[in-house]
Nucleic acid binder design. Structure first.
Lengths: 162, 162
DNA sequence: GCAATAGCTAACAAAACTTGTTAGTTGCCA
DNA sequence: TGGCAACTAACAAGTTTTGTTAGCTATTGC
C-alpha cells in the first residue's frame, strides 16, 4: 500500500490532483475489510470527513480503478464491490452469507500458460448476432484475443459450514 | 429446447401454472440471440402479447432460473443478462463491443477434476472479517466447499479486431 | 509566496434497473 | 364446472449509479 506521499506523487504523475478526498477514499479502501461497496467506503470516509459526497467517493474509486490501483468485483446483482488487491487472483462467493473471499494461486494451477492459452473453443453462441435469430456461428479461437480471465467459485465458506 | 407441451408439463410438475406469459417468455429467451436482458425479452414478447408487463417478464425469467432452465450472467454493471444455455460453459466478454460469447469446453482443459479441486489456496482476504481492520486470515481450503465455478474471459472479439 | 487556471467537489437531479404491493383475473383440480 | 390458489398488470417505490453545474482548491508559472 502506498504511503500518502507516494499516493500524491502517483496521482500527479497521472495528471490528477492530490486532493484530501482522494487520499481519504484510498485509505478507506485499504482499511475496510473484504470487498467494500462505494457506500461502505463513504461511511468510513465520513467518520473523518463528514461533508464528502457519495458522488465524490464514486468518482475517486473509479479514478483508482482507471489507474490500476483497484478492481471492481462483479459477482452478482447489487452494488459494485471494490477490490484493493490488484495482484492476479480469483474469488470465492459464499451462497449463504454472500461474502467474497480472495482465492490466491488458483490461476497457475488451473490454467497452464494463461493468458497465452490459444486453443479454447470460442464461441458457441454469438452475443451480437442478427437480432432475429439465435446465432450458432463458431469462430476460430485464434480470432479472439484473450487479455484477462477471472474465476468465480461459488459454494459454502468455512464459517457457514462448508 | 422444450416443446410447448413439454414446458407446460414441466411447469406443472414443479408446482407452477402453465400460463401464456410463461410460454411467451420461454420462447423469446430461446429466439433472442446471445444473452438478452429482461428488457430485450420484454420487447420480443410484446410483439405477440402487447399487454404483458415488464414485471411479469422479470417474474417469469426468475422462475426459469429457479427451475434451472436459465442462468443469469453477471459480467459487469448494467442490466442482468439471461442465458438459456444451462450446459457447463464459460463466457468471453469483448471490452470494445461488450458482447458476451459462450466459451465451451474451457473448463475441462483449465481445471483438472473440478469441482473436486481440493488444494486451491483460499482465502487471502476475508469478506466478513472484523469491520475495523483488514483480515488476512488464511483458512485451509478443506473448509470451503466449492460447488460451482465460472470463468470470465475478457479481451477483443473477432469482429472487433481481436 | 501569489495569482491564474484547470481540475475537483458538493449538491441536486435524474437515469437505469429491479422489486414490492395489490386488486382483479385465470389456470387447475376435484 | 365451481372454487381457490396462483398469476398478471398496473402502479409505486427502492436501490445503485451517473449527469450537471456552480463554486472551490491544488497546481504551476512567475
Amino acid at each position: 500500500m502506498r504511503s500518502p506521499d507516494e499516493l500524491s506523487e502517483f496521482l500527479r504523475a497521472n495528471g490528477l490532483k492530490a486532493t484530501p478526498q482522494r487520499h481519504a477514499v484510498f485509505e478507506a479502501l485499504h482499511r475496510e475489510s473484504g470487498h467494500p461497496t462505494a457506500d461502505d467506503i463513504w461511511a468510513r470516509v465520513r467518520e473523518q470527513m463528514p461533508t464528502i459526497s457519495l458522488r465524490t467517493v464514486y468518482q475517486a474509486l473509479h479514478d483508482l480503478v482507471d489507474l490500476g490501483e483497484a478492481r471492481i468485483v462483479t459477482v452478482g446483482a447489487g452494488a459494485a464491490q471494490f477490490d484493493r488487491n490488484t495482484e492476479q487472483h480469483d474469488h470465492f462467493v459464499c451462497r449463504k452469507c454472500e461474502a467474497i473471499f480472495d482465492v490466491v494461486s488458483s490461476r497457475p494451477r488451473l490454467m497452464s500458460g494463461f493468458p497465452d492459452v490459444a486453443d479454447v473453443e470460442l464461441p458457441a453462441t454469438d452475443g451480437s448476432g442478427p437480432s432475429g435469430a439465435r446465432s450458432d456461428v463458431v469462430e476460430p479461437a485464434a480470432n479472439f484475443q484473450i487479455e484477462t480471465a477471472e474465476v468465480i467459485f461459488r459454494g459454502l465458506c468455512a464459517p457457514c459450514g462448508g
